[in-house]
């Protein structure tokens, strides 16, 4: 079972209080033991609930170590159907390709490089487009 409380709740470490609460409520509703008819399934759901409660307490009480790794319970060898949120499901928050500041910066750098390369080519009597 995952020890990372964020991955237990299926949220990213930067999630807001509201997101944490919503994820917690959703999971409590989903895994409530009363939702299961089989006694053993109920027991399993109770264990899951304990894990969810512990994760919620850990996050809300602020005891989470920031060094905890982003864990995927669904990976290649992932064994658990935990409620891990795929990192691609909310790309605006998590994927580096969607961070506007980063992409603008790298775009500026690329254009500057191209401009320099073009100037050099022209100084040497050539043309960058023809060279390419």
């Amino acid at each position: 079972m995952s020890n990372n409380p964020y991955s237990v709740l299926g949220i990213s470490p930067g999630a807001s209080e509201e997101e944490v609460r919503t994820a917690y409520r959703e999971l409590v509703r989903k895994y409530h033991p009363d939702q299961f008819q089989d006694e053993r399934a109920k027991e399993l759901a109770e264990a899951k609930m304990r894990e969810i409660n512990a994760a919620y307490d850990q996050i809300t009480l602020g005891n989470v170590q920031q060094t905890t790794q982003q864990h995927s319970g669904w990976g290649h060898g992932g064994r658990h159907w935990t409620h891990h949120q795929s990192p691609y499901s909310n790309p605006q928050n998590q994927s580096p390709y969607y961070r506007s500041s980063g992409s603008e910066e790298s775009c500026c750098q690329t254009l500057s490089c191209l401009c320099c390369a073009d100037s050099c080519c022209e100084c040497m009597g050539g043309d960058l487009c023809l060279c390419c």
Binding site: K30, Y31, Q35, F36, A41, L44, A45, K48, S72, G73, W74, G75, H76, G77, G78, R79, H80, W81, T82, H83, H84, S86, S89
Partner: peptide, 26 residues
Amino acid sequence: EETVDRNLALLTYERYGGLVYNIVTI
């Protein structure tokens, strides 16, 4: 959808967990 998710989520997967998760929850 919630019932499928609830039941499959309690199982322990040897492999393909991410794939099953994607199909059921997304």
